[in-house]
Design a protein around this nucleic acid. Structure first.
Lengths: 191, 191
DNA sequence: GTCTATAAATTGATAGAC
DNA sequence: GTCTATCAATTTATAGAC
């Protein structure tokens, strides 16, 4: 579905409110009326975009689980992942983070807000699972996972706002070292 | 000026695009046409809001400088400051961070985008000055300051997206400890 | 299923009386 | 300086031909 792909890009670049359905239709190369054949409302299209982000995220996680046998390596990969698309992040911010900030304004019960929260929860839950696998006790793993994701999100927000790539790499380095030492401190040694 | 105050609140609660000038005028108790006597455009009103945030921020900093003689104490105060207004942060996100995310989408050269970037820069510059005063060398102070602000912003973003207050306090605790140990590690001991 | 035309509502901004 | 009325553009959503 080219519509979701176009909407995904435009929502990242322009945000939800700034992106009109005419923009999306034009970018996808279909007439405006066509959008409403596939999606009842603009919100429904945005939900499809979030779902696309979510499945892309899960695919990344699966790929990392297959590539890295060590949980610590997988966590390092998570922390470094923003560097893979740093240009887009610096220009437009984190596609998940900005979606969350924009959509949550709708009130906590709006379906769109729940979808955005779920997107971030997927991130945190995966990080927590890796921390558990690295030997971190349950409660520590829970708070450490949230802090890790928060630190990554903050790094992207600052890099985007200042329009500079260098703080991104530097801050992610900080996160990586801090996370490594946290795991060493909190994990029960198994060997 | 009641208009700026009303706009400040609505921009925080609803964001820039969702807030119409009719909303602002209504909240301030003046007719719509009156807005344009004081502000040429909606952007000009938003700039006034950012300026209000900026001066409020500087006042906070001045107050902390007067209250806490030790730079480390001032930094702890900075890290803990989100807890002073945690309810609003959980419901609506950081007023500065969400402003940045929303306004930066306008392109790097837009006056509003520059204003948002300056707001974050005020934060980082103050943190850097405190780190310098705590004995951290210049380059370290620069990257540490950015990382600190990023970590705080990330904590607020996660707390807001998950609509939960508990991660905010937990993550800020992490930030505080991490910052304290970073200062101890990197500062030249003067005594 | 695809497309054109248009309705219906919102909104940034202006004109002009008082 | 303050307020009412309104323009002009945008945008979500629908109707209906093909």
């Amino acid at each position: 579905m080219g519509l979701v792909l176009a909407a995904k890009r435009l929502l990242h670049e322009q945000g939800f409110r700034r992106t009109s359905l005419a923009d999306v239709a034009s970018a996808a190369g279909v007439p405006l009326g066509n959008v409403y054949y596939y999606f009842r409302t603009k919100d429904a299209l945005a939900e499809a975009v979030i779902a696309a982000h979510e499945s892309a995220l899960r695919e990344h996680f699966s790929s990392w689980e297959a590539s890295y046998p060590d949980a610590r390596q997988r966590l390092r990969r998570l922390v470094r992942s923003p560097l893979d698309a740093s240009e887009g992040l610096v220009r437009f911010g984190c596609p998940h983070g900005s979606l969350c900030q924009k959509l949550e304004k709708l009130g906590p019960d709006a379906p769109l807000a729940k979808a955005a929260a779920r997107l971030l929860a997927v991130y945190i839950d995966w990080a927590r699972a890796q921390l558990r696998a690295a030997g971190v006790p349950p409660h520590r793993a829970r708070t450490l996972a949230a802090s890790t994701v928060a630190a990554i999100q903050g790094a992207m927000l600052v890099a985007h706002t200042l329009r500079s790539e260098s703080p991104l790499a530097e801050q992610l380095d900080h996160v990586e070292r801090w996370l490594d030492s946290s795991i060493s401190t909190h994990s029960r040694r198994v060997h």
